[in-house]
Amino acid sequence: MKLTVKLFATFRQGRFAEAELELAEGTTLGSLADGLRIPREEIGILMVGGRHAELAHRPAPGDVVAIFPLLGGG
């Protein structure tokens, strides 16, 4: 299945800002992050089609996934 993946902030470094990826059906967002070598503990906002999603979520073909790093400083 094809997914559009948008990466933000530091996640773009050495990767991409937006790409269309081909993934096996049933792939979870966690596995998607693993495949992109994005450490799961660094993920802050995770969205599918403009809605908040969890790492265990399995996106559907054509979904747009957005991944932002976790910001915790003050």
């Binding site: 660094e42 802050g44 976790l70 910001l71 915790g72 400083g73």
Partner: peptide, 11 residues
């Protein structure tokens, strides 16, 4: 998001 360290990429 709850993570093991409780911190973000600011570290």
């Amino acid at each position: 998001r709850e993570t093991p360290g409780g911190k973000g990429i600011e570290t």
